[in-house]
Write a protein that binds this DNA or RNA. Sequence first.
DNA 1: TTGTATGCGTTATCAG
DNA 2: CTGATAACGCATACAA
Lengths: 348, 348
Amino acid sequence: MSLDRRAKTGRRKLAVVASCCPAMGSPRVTSVDVAKAAGVSQSTVSLVFSGKAAGRISAATEASVRAVAADLGYRPNAAARALKTGAARTIALVVPDITNPFFPRLLRGTQQAAREAGYTVALIDTAHDHEWGARSAEALQSGPADGLLLFEVDPPPVDAGWEPIVVIESDGRGHPSVVLDVVGGTRQAVAHLQALGHTRIGHLTAVWDTLTFIQRREVIDAMVDGDVPRAKTDFRVDAARADALDWLRGEPDMTAAFCDDDVLAAGLFVAARELGIRIPEDLAVVGFGDFDIGRVLDPALTTIVADAAALGRMAFEVLSEQMAGGTPADRVLPVGLEIRGSTVAGRG
Amino acid sequence: MSLDRRAKTGRRKLAVVASCCPAMGSPRVTSVDVAKAAGVSQSTVSLVFSGKAAGRISAATEASVRAVAADLGYRPNAAARALKTGAARTIALVVPDITNPFFPRLLRGTQQAAREAGYTVALIDTAHDHEWGARSAEALQSGPADGLLLFEVDPPPVDAGWEPIVVIESDGRGHPSVVLDVVGGTRQAVAHLQALGHTRIGHLTAVWDTLTFIQRREVIDAMVDGDVPRAKTDFRVDAARADALDWLRGEPDMTAAFCDDDVLAAGLFVAARELGIRIPEDLAVVGFGDFDIGRVLDPALTTIVADAAALGRMAFEVLSEQMAGGTPADRVLPVGLEIRGSTVAGRG
DNA sequence: TTGTATGCGTTATCAG
DNA sequence: CTGATAACGCATACAA
């Protein structure tokens, strides 16, 4: 009974709450409140705020509704809208390590594209916890996200309880995928080193056996004669430095190294510095990614330029197509070799 | 009429959709579907999945409900739950530049804390677009997020249509805030330089006039005699390098520089290298943040260590308190000076 | 221990 | 051009 009365005098509620205690909870203004205050029906308010007012609601009415709404501080409730429409206008991007400079750029590109399309991006950083990644993907499917961008996370099977998914830099297993031209980039890098006369080329590689790293290993193994000196390490400067220290000591006749990431290359630089190994005279180094950390090294790092932002935008486009009901084709983003001082003395 | 019939034979829908065309849209399984298939009521299913089954639903029933649900691929609809409960179990973190190494770490810390509490973090990167930041904050209040963590974004007034907000590294204007002990850190750094005998100490500062940078300027101005050589620059290595080049040329008698960020310091290093200025002999350099980019410089960068992850965790804790209805106190996170080779030769 | 009924705030389909 | 009214899927007081 008293509830009914409250509903009928609901308009007064606002003033009361505002002057009472905002901390107690948000004074939620609904479309009904706006309708009452504006003297129109709730559906009119809805029409105005869902952008479907054109040609259906008079300009005067719309203006007054908007004015009243602004006055009351009304905002459409996202949960209710999502429930009704079945779309949250949110996508999730799941990445293994937001701490690696590649991923912030990926996120930024994704977010730019998403923002233009009116989508919000929720970023999930799994910190290389595969299970957590998989569970996040699972959880996100329940509805918080209308679509998923998965970087190096095993996607759920295509047939399962299901939602638009695009896979980045890994095997789509049926889902559309977006990848860098890792094979092409690695070939360029190795060819560059070989053109410089290097024959004993090492590979400082990631500890993870995911598609992108497997491809690099395969390309290098195929292009380089004999066995390839190889060390696996974590994508952190200190870890890379420590592992590179051992590696360099154990491979005295290695004259060039391909690193799976600029961060690894930076670790290798530090190790080389400690051992008195000169770059590029004693050791030529190539990285992957083109991060700031490679540009400030002395000499600057030759690297494979990967446009992470473009990859993110591309991934969003593909996801868009998929959310629109299409069946997008896989895409490959070209990469380029940027030659700097770490392979050619006196350069950059 | 036909709608009613569909509702009644709804259970069959699943099989049809599954065998037909998954790409057409997700075969949404609802708690009603599960209830029917399990031969229980919808509320029983709800009880099971909202974790309130203990002592109310028999173990056998619960097990069978779960089995059927798993079989059908049921996931509770987040929007419906959010609508009903009024909480999305999501918070948003708004940052100015995810590309700066500080913020990924901040995010990671926030996410760790949030995850433990069962919250998801949505990251919004404004790319230093203040308006976009403000609008995001506005938009997020509608309900996608139960609470907001705002880094260097002007918070909406406390009294407005309202939601829990914690402000990081800026003026809360009534909202609880979490900040680094920037004043203490800057003091330590300047004192360190002065103890080394430097008197002409410059300041490579940010182009933004936000609280944290204003504080640093004030501390330095107060501690250093005479005018302080100062240059403003963007938080990008190339921008910092370019600006530092001019700055160094124009300030020949400056013997030490405090940089607002390790990224700026890295730019300064590159510029100094190009000009043949030796670090630390000709110029001692202190950074802020303790990023990888400072560790790989030669010599390594003396810096103010700011634990971004801890700041993120702290911010989430404060937000938690607030969401729980409390009125948390502001908090300050201590920072420490890490002395390395860029100020003291032969060190690190 | 389980089932029934109701409403969260929206959107969308209709009459008016 | 506008106003009732019925879902959307879940949670919860209450009845059984």
